[in-house]
Design a protein around this nucleic acid. Structure first.
Lengths: 143, 143
DNA sequence: CTTGACCTTAAAGTCGACTTTAAGGTTTAT
DNA sequence: ATAAACCTTAAAGTCGACTTTAAGGTCAAG
């Protein structure tokens, strides 16, 4: 019913992205016309819109593929999806904590380093953090 | 004074990583022995420790290279580094906000979807978010 | 009959920071 | 003399989700 450029228009996806998804097996069997053009139906468009949303939620193509395959084979994918969403939330929480630590580290560094007038440190005291402890170790290691 | 494996021991870096940094020009001119082995001095080890710290703070190799080159040519890299740190803090803030939105989105999705009993949606209502508005558009687009 | 707008595939390129592999040279100990 | 433990380079592989390129087939309009 639809050729690839129509599907691009409807979904907002790039034609090469759609072919890529197809090549990765996310669309199952896509119908072909006599001249070997892909012919997309309503189901295909639904799948593509689904893929787009799932990608936007941070799902990987492999995860999405699994969902689509479960669905295709009559198994409700909801529990899998629900679990994945919970995993993603957990990962995001972790990542936020990591970033907040990172941010604090950088802010502290900036604060500390700005107290100093002029340029200190072997290369740059902003990054080296003014420490001198490693000095001795290094000297010893070299000799 | 030091061969690469000694530098690995001191810095905790992999030998191929050190060679990689060298190949990218981060170490400047590294001395060579008669048999063409790299011979590292105190300065080189300092640079490598600096690179390690900077990488840990989220600096890219190209940024670090610039710092090292500034330093080498006698220009204090501090103002560049300070600016980069501020940029990184800004990026991290943005990223945290993005992740918090993402997290809220996923949590809302989970909450909403769990109200429903059984499996709804064309593929999975967890991801599709129960909406039906797009339905008509799609129907029209196909015909 | 040719131009332009479609469509196809396979393969390579992109991003960054490495890691791995292949093929080989050096040095030290046994 | 040979094995072990170093060292070297260039090139390819890795991760994921694409994008781009090259080379070519199809189809309708002018």
């Amino acid at each position: 019913m639809l050729l690839i450029k129509d599907v691009c228009r409807i979904t907002g996806l790039n034609s090469s992205t759609i072919r890529y998804y197809d090549s990765k097996g996310l669309l199952g069997e896509v119908e072909r016309s006599d001249n070997n053009y892909r012919v997309f139906g309503k189901k295909d468009v639904e799948k593509l819109l689904f893929i787009k949303k799932a990608r936007d939620l941070g799902f990987e193509l492999e995860e999405i593929k699994k969902v689509l395959i479960l669905k295709e084979s009559g198994v409700p994918p909801c529990s899998y999806v629900s679990r994945k969403i919970q995993e993603k939330i957990a990962l995001i929480k972790k990542e936020i904590i990591r970033l907040e630590k990172e941010r604090k580290k950088l802010e502290d560094l900036l604060q500390e380093a700005q107290k100093v007038t002029g340029c200190r440190g072997k290369i740059c005291h902003y990054i080296e953090g003014l420490e001198e402890e490693q000095e001795l170790e290094l000297e010893n290691a070299i000799k």
